[in-house]
């Protein structure tokens, strides 16, 4: 019996130590993301807004990566999650989240659940997140993971994201986590007037730019392409 108590205590302590490690790693990641925001933003805001940073601070990224990648969970870079997919770089997640300008009452559609990390971040900021995944294994894992971690305002399904999620449309915002060859017209139709759609463009490990589509109150479409990094003068001295 003593033996079991000792083992239990040891495990509890180890688990606690792990949590502390993860928490401090998370804080370090936040500092880096915020610092880079100051340095690299191509917008008027010098930093990411507090709500986005709070969401990043509370979602446990290590819960969303495979066991082998846990030691790197709070590195500010993308990580493989199997099936040829990745969990995005925290800096890009922050940038995308801020771009959709999420509000507490919003209903958001995500195309490409992946690990569920982006959905979890959004879940901290909005009323409900609907998320669609086309890879069965990832869809199952993400559904189980989000439920286990208590994200009960996220609903996922295995389906073709091209046609959006008609029964829950229109959406205040839509996040497409990987760029297709074209933006599916049904997604734009399912965007509310005043809504925003954001897509990262580039390879799995290298986001080149972000595409932001805004639908005005008059149903007019305005798109902006935002560089993932602020490139200092392109023809500057070097």
């Amino acid at each position: 019996m003593k033996y079991f108590v000792c083992v239990f205590l040891l495990l509890a302590l180890t688990a606690h130590a792990d949590d502390t490690d993860y928490a401090s790693a998370r804080m370090a990641m936040l500092t880096e993301v915020q610092n880079y925001a100051k340095l690299a933003r191509d917008t008027d805001d010098a930093t990411f807004n507090d709500d986005v940073m709070r969401a990043l601070a509370t979602v446990e990224r290590h819960e969303f990566v495979p066991e082998s990648e846990k030691p790197f969970a709070y590195e500010n870079h993308p990580l493989p999650i199997g099936h040829g997919q990745t969990i995005s770089q925290p800096y890009i997640v922050a940038l995308m989240t801020e771009l959709i300008d999420a509000k507490p009452d919003d209903v958001v559609l995500e195309i490409g659940t992946g690990s569920g990390y982006q959905a979890a971040i959004l879940a901290k900021l909005v009323n409900h997140v609907y998320s669609i995944e086309i890879i069965e294994a990832l869809a199952d894992q993400a559904r189980e993971r989000l439920a286990r971690l208590g994200y009960d305002n996220v609903t996922t399904k295995l389906s073709d994201g091209y046609y959006g999620w008609e029964e829950h449309a229109p959406f205040d915002a839509i996040v497409v986590t990987a760029a297709p060859s074209h933006i599916p017209p049904p997604l734009i139709q399912q965007l509310k007037p005043g809504g925003r759609l954001v897509v990262p463009v580039g390879g799995r490990f290298m986001t080149q730019q972000l595409l932001l589509i805004e639908k005005t109150e008059d149903d007019e479409i305005i798109t902006r392409q935002i560089a993932a990094v602020r490139f200092v003068p392109l023809t500057g001295k070097h």
Binding site: E32, Y36, L39, A40, N76, H77, Q89, Y91, I92, L95, G202, G203, F205, M206, T207, Q208, Q209, A227, A228, V229, F231, V232, H238
Partner: peptide, 20 residues
């Protein structure tokens, strides 16, 4: 890629510059 720009691009990797 220009060699002369490489140090600058390397310094931007973690702030969204990997695609450069």
């Amino acid at each position: 890629l220009k060699w002369s720009a490489l140090p600058e691009f390397m310094s931007l990797i973690r702030r969204g510059g990997a695609g450069l």
